[in-house]
Amino acid sequence: MANTNPLSSNSDQLINEFKALVRDTESLLQHSASLAGEQAEELRNQIRGSLGRARSTLHNAEDALHERGKAAIQATEGYVQTHPWQTLGIAAAIGLLLGMLISRR
């Protein structure tokens, strides 16, 4: 089954990008003593590219999370506006349950 959750997809991409960044950084550290000139510059460019991709993926994940948050807020506000008494009852019930749980301790 295909993954339809854009936030999960962005999270997976972000994790993969950071793993690649860590691998590239480890490679640079291991070879930095023996590399000189063009080889060292090539590794640095690879790391810069990995870092750029990771930043881009992080930005995309942040945007997707922000959009999901906005949608959740709008849905909650819409429900509260159309069902004010039920919302008040639910809030009172949750408060009562939490009060009972806290008083047991």
Rank of each mutant, 00 (worst) to 15 (best):
R104I: 02
S9V: 07
D24K: 02
I73P: 04
L14E: 13
L101W: 13
L35Q: 05
G69S: 00
L35M: 08
T87F: 01
S9R: 09
I73W: 10
G89T: 14
E77S: 14
K70E: 15
I15F: 12
N60C: 00
Q81G: 08
L98M: 12
Y79E: 13
R104N: 08
A72D: 13
K19S: 01
T82L: 15
V22T: 11
L51P: 07
A54G: 07
S9D: 09
R48V: 04
V80S: 08
R104E: 03
T76Y: 08
S56Q: 11
E41M: 03
E26D: 02
S103H: 03
E77W: 12
Y79I: 07
K19G: 02
G49A: 13
A33W: 05
E17G: 04
T87H: 04
H31P: 02
L28C: 06
L7F: 05
M100Y: 05
L97V: 02
L58E: 07
I73M: 07
I15Y: 12
R44L: 02
R23M: 15
L97Y: 02
T87I: 04
E41V: 06
S50D: 00
L43A: 04
A75M: 08
L58H: 08
Q86C: 11
V80M: 14
P84A: 00
W85N: 07
R44Y: 00
E77C: 12
N45M: 03
L7D: 06
T25R: 03
A71T: 09
L43F: 03
H66Q: 15
S27Q: 10
L35T: 03
P84C: 01
L98V: 07
N5S: 05
E26Q: 00
E62I: 11
L58C: 10
G89V: 15
S11N: 14
T87M: 04
T82E: 14
S27V: 05
L28R: 06
Y79K: 11
I90F: 07
F18W: 03
H59I: 11
M1L: 11
K70W: 11
H83V: 01
S50T: 03
S11F: 10
K70I: 15
L88Y: 05
N10C: 13
G78P: 04
G37A: 08
R48N: 06
M100A: 11
N5D: 09
M100N: 06
L35A: 04
E41A: 11
S8N: 00
T82Y: 11
S27W: 06
M1Q: 05
I94E: 01
L35C: 08
I102S: 03
A92F: 07
S103I: 01
R105C: 13
P84K: 01
T76V: 09
R104A: 03
A20L: 01
L29C: 13
R48D: 05
H66M: 15
S11G: 05
L65S: 02
T82A: 15
A64W: 03
G52W: 14
L58P: 00
T4W: 13
N3V: 09
S50P: 04
G37R: 05
I47A: 01
A75L: 10
G99Y: 10
A20M: 03
S9F: 06
A61M: 14
Q13P: 04
L7A: 06
